[in-house]
Amino acid sequence: MEIANIVDKCPGTVKEVIIGATKDEGGTRGKSITVGGSNCIPFMDFDGSPGHKPAIAMDVYDIPPEEWPEPLMKHYADVVDNPANWAKKCVEFGADLICLKLDGIHPDKKNISASETVSTVKSILEAVDIPLIIWGCENDERDNEILPKVSEATKGERCLIGSVTQDNYKTITAVCLADGHNLITQAPVDINIGKQINILVADLGFPTDRIVMFQTTGALGYGIEYCYSIHERARIAALSGDRQMSFPIICDVGHEAWRSKESKARDDEVPQWGSFADRGKMWEAITATTLMQSGVDIIRMNHPEAVSIVKKHIENLT
């Protein structure tokens, strides 16, 4: 008996976004990373092309993180005050991309200046040759002051810069447009605002093959189901042909997983929860592998072993 072909074909495809530019392309990266390109439900490669594998971006902060638990901090203790060395370490751990998070520019933290931030960014570009994500502090005033300087200083490197929201997008969108960078559009776990910000940046003439969406992330036990369903709905909209939602998705797993109490509580506080040394990295790995099923293209992570678990999982699924 002939078996009926029940392949689900999708009319839409997630756009491909290229991050990083090599010397030939006007930058200094050893290679670029392409994300997106899927035209089927994640990992259902019998239905269509699953596109590019999810890429792992490892976080580097411009100031030493204050609240990292010891099982995470021990991997970075010697480099947390030197972002360039930190980035080198991430490359050794298998990072596809470096995500430089500029927490230190926030007025409530170190209020670091634009020139100092530009030097930090340049030191990372010199230290490693993988593509760079540069993420502000989410204080609109400081982001609008610092990110244009950073964008200009990295012109030609085709970084991924963010984030912009529906209330603050014009300045950063304009500089990323001028300097040839990609852009992260952010919405607070809200599919309607997620679409709106994409329309707003496209209205400014920003090319739609340079947009990556951030729907904000919740870790396992901290709203992962909301985040999952938003990713899923965004991806199904993209596959159904919604041009304003057909962009790759980035999620922030590392930061969210490591601020959970399950990652922070010591053995003597909750002996019944299992080993403190293992809990956090498992929390991070499970959050990442769960969200991968919802359709994510870039995963921000922290713990080297969690990264290797997730990379192995990606290999198994693709």
Partner: peptide
């Protein structure tokens, strides 16, 4: 629910 709502949904769909 064939298109996701956004404040500019009409403008976006008209393109």
């Amino acid at each position: 629910n064939k298109q996701i709502y956004s404040d500019s949904f009409l403008k976006a769909a008209r393109r």
